[in-house]
């Protein structure tokens, strides 16, 4: 069910089609055609009082300093009001299909981008529902049971809407985090020449396979460019060292060796060294030195100085 609501974002660009995910999602919200039929009957009342509720809402909204900051001028307010009218009309009687979901998600992502917080969004929603429900119960005094079930159906759809919006918020954030991670992993690792023939590469952050590949390329290019014969790879700044990271390091160092440079690994903490050995990473594949200074000394020794 969760997939629904999140996966429909990627579908939104393509053709809207009826899918199993949507069916599952609607089942989870206990939403049926019956609910849709009931809320559609609210159409007249909603149209009738919609504008008034929205006006009241804006009075409420513009009185709030944080919320009112979202509006530039009256023209902007008018435009957003129009959008809101449409939004609430669709809540009452739009078909709950893939294009509805895509549209709700689009609105969610606009909200996320423009800084409309979930509190603001859900608060606005609650305001509208509360006002509308009161009007409905009022006007249908002669059939309160029916009025109540109409309102309940409306609440179901509203919750479905809010779930869509929140999923979109989370997805948008997640995309942003992923993009940042990609940027970070693309940060170049400096290749420093300490003296002719000797390179130092401080590795910082997370060493995933993408980054390890980039590191290997940089290392090999550095060896070629500087005609290096020894390379000190310092991993003091690597957040987590496990067998996968060790594997990347072993391969990077093997590549350096093939290029004719002696690699020395430094910066393993005592705890990490111990756990790597227990995991089964053997030291034969890695020439290591206790700390950076010793690493450089060892590299110099390897250079024959």
């Amino acid at each position: 069910m969760r997939e629904v609501i999140s996966s429909s974002l990627s579908d939104s660009e393509g053709k809207p089609e009826f899918d199993q995910d949507l069916v599952d999602a609607m089942r989870w919200f206990d939403l049926s055609d019956h609910d849709r039929a009931l809320t559609s009957e609210l159409g007249d009342i909603a149209d009738d009082v919609g504008e008034r509720i929205i006006e009241a809402f804006y009075t409420h909204l513009l009185a709030d300093e944080t919320a009112s900051r979202h509006f530039r001028d009256d023209a902007h307010i008018a435009q957003v009001k129009k959008g809101q009218m449409r939004y609430f009309r669709e809540l009452i009687n739009a078909d709950l299909d893939s294009s509805y979901i895509a549209d709700r998600r689009r609105i969610g992502s606009i909200h996320e981008r423009t800084g409309v917080t979930p509190t603001l969004y859900i608060g606005a929603y609650a305001f509208y529902l509360n006002k509308l429900a009161n009007v409905v119960l009022d006007r249908m005094e002669d059939d309160p049971a029916k009025a109540f079930s109409m309102v309940l159906s409306l609440f179901k759809i509203a919750h479905f809407d809010m779930a869509l919006a929140l999923e979109t918020y989370a997805d948008t954030r997640e995309e942003a985090i992923k993009a940042r991670e990609r940027e970070l992993s693309e940060l170049p690792t400096p290749v420093l020449q300490l003296r002719p023939g000797l390179l130092l590469i401080p590795v910082v952050g997370t060493l995933d396979s993408y980054r390890a590949r980039a590191l290997t390329i940089q290392l090999l290019e550095g060896i070629q460019e500087h005609r290096a014969r020894a390379v000190v790879l310092d991993i003091t700044g690597v957040a987590a060292v496990d067998s996968a990271v060790a594997n990347h390091l072993i391969q990077t160092m093997a590549a350096a060796r093939l290029m004719g440079a002696q690699p020395v690994l430094t910066g393993l903490s005592a705890e990490v060294a111990q756990s790597l050995v227990k995991v089964g990473v053997t030291a034969e594949a890695l020439s290591t030195a206790g700390d950076l200074q010793r690493g450089i000394e060892l590299a110099e020794h390897l250079l024959g100085e």
Binding site: A239, A240, E271, Q274, V279
Partner: peptide
């Protein structure tokens, strides 16, 4: 990958809270 790091940090913090020795914290994290 980022979740691997988070899980690892969560484990290390828990081991530290419980008073595991530093080498053992590293083992749990690993």
């Amino acid at each position: 990958d980022a979740d691997v790091i988070s899980a690892r940090q969560m484990g290390r913090a828990l081991a530290e809270d419980l008073g595991f020795s530093r080498p053992d914290q590293a083992l749990v994290a690993t």
